[in-house]
Nucleic acid binder design. Structure first.
Lengths: 196, 196, 196, 196
DNA sequence: AATGAATGAGGGTTCATTCAT
DNA sequence: GATGAATGAACCCTCATTCAT
């Protein structure tokens, strides 16, 4: 009996992933704000109504993807943290910017949601612990690196600065993805230098 | 004859300003992405068709406003630069963040266009000299402050970091505008400290 | 064997009642046209698919409820008729309007189906004997009250008039349910007076 | 100048009528609740967006049609009233039922809006004076016919009864329109008799 | 040059109904 | 027989843009 439920649950999860990955495939092709429910459904090979069995509305889908990215980056950081060797600020900045470079959508969403406001407070509630974990991890790294004063403020500053790199240079016209990556990583290093 | 043309041109310019300032008035009330062409036309006291005699499409209007903001910030910086007293990095950061705080729309647009990509290259061409001037001014300030190496990179890093502050904290849920302003200015100071 | 079938039949009947009463509970909360199949299923504690094992479509469910109301009112009238004391026209009108006041849904459905047309003739067949019984009962009351001529026509007129009271005044804006009830009963009395 | 505005106004009115009459044509073919915006637009030979230049939403269109019917019936009654000869209750009832027979949609709408509730109060405000005029005219007829007591109540009773005739018999299954008309007029006469 | 009515593609979303399990 | 996830047509409505005046 439990097995049956589990199976159902698994199937549900599988289909949800179908939708998510279809969405992400589309997001890599164009601005996520321009991707429609119907397109995602088609790409996922389901009917458009099905999306609404998994998400109350499109915003929820977007937020789900956003949060799964945020969780993933937290996991990556924690993995590195766990791997005994101390995680330097430099390494953190590299990781952060690398992740954003590889996941433009995440960055676009962060920008969109953070600036758009108007999110149901329920969403903020879901977002809050994940963002807080992220910040806590960053702060821990700072402390381990010898930082003593205003570690929270410094965390905020680094976090914001790295995000700012992307908003400012991720779509620099006339530059290839490779060049952009190189440039942003270089800037990330500059910032890391400054915070050491 | 020339005078006649000039007059026409002036009228045209006047009407264009009517539209711009109407748009800005609306943007201060709500997210610029939610403001419609008709609303702007009504606020400006012109017909909606008229907007299209001045701008090929809405994006162009948005970009024009964006650029006029960028020009304004350049003017402000240059004014301070001209006022003999050396402009410190701290003062620059304060100015930059202060301006963004007072002009949310500018910031939202920067985020929107820089991330959205897909801008016609013609637009990039218009944007380029203004952004370059901005960056030049910032670099000049760094040099005057005693910076010697990698001044271009450092300019980029500071520029991006300050923008990042806003994207990350401008709409922090549960904080008043006053608190946000205070927080972002504090973070701006932290960044400035690091670049001294 | 028969017992087994009977049992099955009873179970079927039980479930059907589950659905009906769930629907009625919802109808008392909001306009029946706004109640969805899923809502009814959920309220009844069955799956939405199950509804379709008992009813070919939602209209059939609505009609079934409508008819059960009609049966109920027939039963009420017959109870009063059976209770020896002659049932006056006044009493009938009161009863009729009282019932409609207490069962808005019935009234709304009557209006909906009678005006909507397009009912499958099969439905009309089910409806016919019940409506006829209703009318017969009313006619009997008229006759017992001393009516002699055109008793059928008079029955129709009274029946229609009483229904009309509700359509016209059941939702009179700005009036409380209590006031509406009082007003419609007063009008019912007026009509009864006229038919004596 | 005035002429120009008038012309524009006339054109606007003409197109509005185009929409209204297209809608009414469709209403005569099927239940007005089933007629969609697109259908009306197509029938009227305009785009679907155009409807929304004339009506805020579909409800407003329906209400407009409803109110224009109500105005029309008022006008008809007043014409007869003005034609010197006293307007008997019989003639009124005949007129009322005749009009409803010829304009089923009006009747369906009256039923729909009166039962549906949930109309914006603004609508009730528009409806109120027209319905009041209707009732006043009816009351005046009663008074002229020699009625003395409770004339308002009697007006309500007659009004509601006549409406009830239609709800109850307008779509009587198996009857032709002609038969229905005959039957409802006969019932109307019965009611009129009773109120003399 | 300015107007603003008309356009119509396209958006998100709903929900009665079906059907594989 | 019961389930309930999936369906997908259909809904209302918006709004950037066009173009006849």
């Amino acid at each position: 009996m439990t097995t049956f439920k589990e199976l159902k649950e698994k199937e549900r999860e599988a289909r949800r992933n179908l939708i998510i990955s279809a969405a992400q495939r589309l997001f890599s092709e164009k601005d996520f704000r321009k991707v429609t429910a119907r397109e995602i459904a088609k790409e996922a090979g389901v009917s458009s109504g099905t999306i609404y069995r998994y998400y109350k509305n499109m915003d929820e889908l977007f937020i789900d993807i956003f949060l799964s990215h945020a969780s993933e980056i937290n996991r990556l950081i924690e993995e590195e943290l766990a791997a005994s060797k101390p995680l330097s600020i430099h390494r953190y900045c590299e990781l952060h910017v690398h992740y954003l470079n590889e996941n433009m959508t995440f960055y676009q969403m962060m920008s969109h949601f953070m600036l758009g406001g108007g999110l149901p407070s329920e969403t903020s509630l879901k977002m809050d612990p994940i963002m807080r974990t992220w910040m806590n991890n960053l702060e821990r790294i700072l402390i381990r690196s010898g930082f003593r004063e205003d570690t929270r403020i410094a965390s905020h500053a680094i976090f914001a600065s790295l995000n700012g790199l992307m908003i400012s240079y991720a779509k620099y016209p006339g530059r290839s993805l490779e060049e952009i990556k190189k440039h942003t990583l270089k800037l990330a290093k500059t910032i890391a230098d400054r915070f050491c």
